[in-house]
């Protein structure tokens, strides 16, 4: 359970991240607002509450690892890096520009703090499993967290990793699914129904949890619960709204990767600034 102060702090951070995300994508005139906004609370609770991670030492061998498998949502990750002081707030304006460390999809060779390059969907869980196995070999107690999109679960490689994580009893691996129900071309139900995901992961040998992905209290609770896992990997289905916080984007697949014009931008910022914590 979070204290009222912690809760207020996390909500405030989340609200600020949304503004930074919008600003960066608007300046770049390119990027993915929908999926960046949907997992803002997940990211906020992880980096400001759950992860063992000191931004002054982003390469500490004992740190928890975080992989953004749905790499297109990186504007939110860059925004939290700015909040953590890994990059300067001004650098966010360089998103997607030539020479920038803030690539359109995360590049671990350019930006400290990025644990694994990502972008092509379906790759991150495998890499996360590799990190989890390395922790065991090195007898370290760090945990590895991977955020995936729900549409991303249509990639077959995710299920290869799901099988393997159960086989290798990777209790130190936590997958978090940003379960917003919307992908590039439409809803996941229209494009490729995912079926009973909890039953699927459960039958693969995973411990399955569900939560409201916008409720910082609930998220902190499931993350704490997931840390108790010993020999089963954990998947958390975090129910979210794509484009959360910007009324005209919410739940609309058209905002997966649409350019934001000046008028729409002002509208979005006005809405986000009106949020009461």
């Amino acid at each position: 359970m979070l204290t009222p102060d912690e809760e207020r702090f996390l909500k405030g951070k989340a609200a600020k991240l949304r503004r930074l995300v919008l600003e960066a994508i608007y300046h770049a005139q390119s990027g993915h607002p929908g999926g960046s906004l949907s997992y803002v609370e997940i990211l906020t609770v992880l980096y400001f509450h759950t992860l063992r991670f000191d931004p002054r030492h982003p390469a500490d061998p004992g740190r928890d690892r975080f992989i953004l498998s749905k790499g297109h949502a990186c504007p939110a990750l860059y925004a939290i890096f700015a909040e953590l002081g890994i990059i300067s707030p001004a650098e966010l304006a360089s998103l997607r520009r030539v020479g920038s460390r803030l690539q359109g999809h995360p590049d671990m060779t350019k930006l400290p703090g990025i644990e694994m390059s990502s972008g092509p969907l379906g790759l991150g869980l495998s890499a996360g499993l590799g990190m989890a196995l390395a922790a065991r070999l090195d007898k370290r107690d760090y945990r590895t967290y991977v955020v995936l999109g729900d549409g991303e679960l249509q990639e077959g490689m995710v299920w290869e990793a799901a099988m393997a994580a159960a086989k290798f009893r990777a209790g130190n691996l936590t997958a978090i699914v940003d379960f917003n129900g919307v992908q590039l071309d439409g809803t996941t139900d229209e494009i490729m129904p995912l079926g009973d995901l909890a039953a699927k992961f459960g039958s693969f040998g995973w411990q399955v949890m569900e939560t409201d992905g916008h409720d910082v209290n609930a998220l902190a609770g499931v993350f704490a619960e997931a840390k108790k896992a010993v020999d089963k990997p954990v998947v958390i289905f975090a129910r979210t709204i794509k484009g959360k916080g910007v009324s005209y984007m919410e739940g609309r697949y058209q905002w997966h990767g649409q350019v934001i014009d000046a008028e729409k931008y002002q509208l979005a910022i006005a809405e986000l600034e009106a949020v009461k914590i």
Binding site: S126, A127, G130, M131, D138, T144, M157, A164
Partner: peptide, 18 residues
């Protein structure tokens, strides 16, 4: 198992940890 994609992904994660 018969999962070459996953194998290379896991290898990358292991390499990222030294």
């Amino acid at each position: 198992g018969i999962a070459e994609n996953n194998m290379l992904g896991v290898a990358a994660g292991l390499a990222a940890c030294g």
